[in-house]
Design a protein around this nucleic acid. Structure first.
Lengths: 244, 244
DNA sequence: TGCAGATGTTTATTAGAGTAAATATATCAC
DNA sequence: GTGATATATTTACTCTAATAAACATCTGCA
């Protein structure tokens, strides 16, 4: 009914103003904000207060701060990494498990594989083959692909090709968190072998336009991963990643 | 290969330490951290530096800070609100649209409706009826249910009942963002009427254990919403929410 | 008992000064 | 001129010290 009369903190005002300016498009990603010294006078607050506000905006992913001449706060798009970390932190406090992640995968990914088989252009197939080749190369070198970005990319690319940013984001964080759990379980060499073989089966079906085959192969791949990880003992929470 | 030799900022060290302590469970949600004064001596940094670190941890959702006697930093679970905002901010910079959100819904929600019809207990059905009743009550009062939490709850509860935190989170943010877009489009009274009628159809199928019916009704509901919003003109980005 | 005020604790904000890092610019050798 | 090196400048980062505001609790008076 009435507006709350509680005086917010000064830094909150600053955060809100900058945030809204960015979301409204008045401040575009890439654009520089004035340096501390000037912002202090513009907002009429002390350096300390201003810096706290900038720190918060930085944590939210709205700005990056560079030092040195020509540096200062720069507006940036909120990126997947910031968001992924937030999701991972949230799920850490829920009972996220391999099976809960796998359930989501089993619904979404076969759908995406089918779509890929039906709609992929020659170029898209080439990219997917590239990703697959990179995985193979890593495996030859390291005898392990668990925990690499490339392993995830195979799945995320199917989502990216759908041109649906929501789908892509979901695939990204589900696979990232799952991979994080995996790498703590330290599966053996045969696990990576199975993954590569499955990817290959999916890829082949997509290449030949075999929608049913792609859907089935993907479903089976996810089930296999879930089972093999289940055998590897009790599931651990996604633990501390490097992010700060 | 070698560890990066770049000196991180002092506040980064503090953030990492506290964050890891919380993720490892050494610091439990609800637990109080020592007041600024003591943290300053424990970390051996100035008050300013410490406060910046606390501000960042606050933005990440790991702590809350209360002022006054007995106040201070309190460890808290990273909650859905923090995470939802982060996702909304991220998707703001992608081309999220009603159709991209609807595509995800069309895959996940019919599945959940089917599952509900197959497995819901009498108690769970009662809760769902309660939510539905609340929606009806709001509609009678306001002639509009768009933008209310109750509208979302109907969908999120189906996910919550699946006991899959990942699923629940996805349903929460997809429906929250969609509702945010909706409320900016200001659909008329008949839109709310259609939504309520559709919810009722889904509810009825779940109550009678009609899995096929529930699945189909939910799918149709989502398509209907997508179409009606499509007619309402070009889609707008999810705009500024109140969060700070 | 119950209310008003005093007291102590803790965060919020300010001011000012000095340090360290990154960049830009000028200088010098060739 | 070109390239490398030194210098200067810009900018964020850190620290100290002190005041103001919020909050909880205790105290004393009616």
């Amino acid at each position: 009914m009435f507006q709350s009369a509680t005086k917010d903190k000064m830094s909150t005002h600053i955060i809100r103003q900058v945030r809204e300016a960015i979301l409204k498009g008045e401040l575009q990603p890439g654009q520089c904000l004035p340096p501390e010294k000037e912002l202090v006078t513009q907002f009429g607050v002390s350096k300390h207060t201003l810096r706290e506000a900038l720190r918060t905006l930085e944590a939210m992913g709205f700005i990056e701060i560079k030092r040195g001449a020509g540096g200062g706060p720069v507006v940036s798009e909120v990126d997947m990494k910031t968001t992924r970390d937030s999701i991972a932190n949230f799920l850490h406090f829920q009972n996220v498990s391999v099976s809960s992640l796998s359930e989501v995968r089993k619904i979404l990914e076969p759908y995406l594989a089918r779509r890929a088989a039906e709609t992929f252009s020659a170029q898209e197939i080439e990219i997917l083959e590239d990703i697959d080749a990179k995985c193979q190369a890593i495996f030859k070198r390291e005898k392990n692909i668990v925990g690499t970005r490339e392993e995830i990319d195979f799945h995320v690319f199917l989502a990216r090709a759908s041109r649906n940013p929501v789908m892509e984001m979901i695939l990204d964080f589900v696979n990232s968190i799952l991979t994080d759990i995996k790498s703590h379980m330290k599966p053996g060499i045969e696990f990576s072998e199975h993954v590569l073989a499955s990817h290959h089966k999916v890829l082949k079906a997509i290449k030949t336009g075999d929608a049913d085959g792609a859907e089935k192969a993907m479903y089976q791949h996810i089930c296999e991963v879930e089972e093999e990880l289940g055998e590897l003992g009790e599931e651990k929470k996604p633990t501390v990643n490097k992010a700060v």
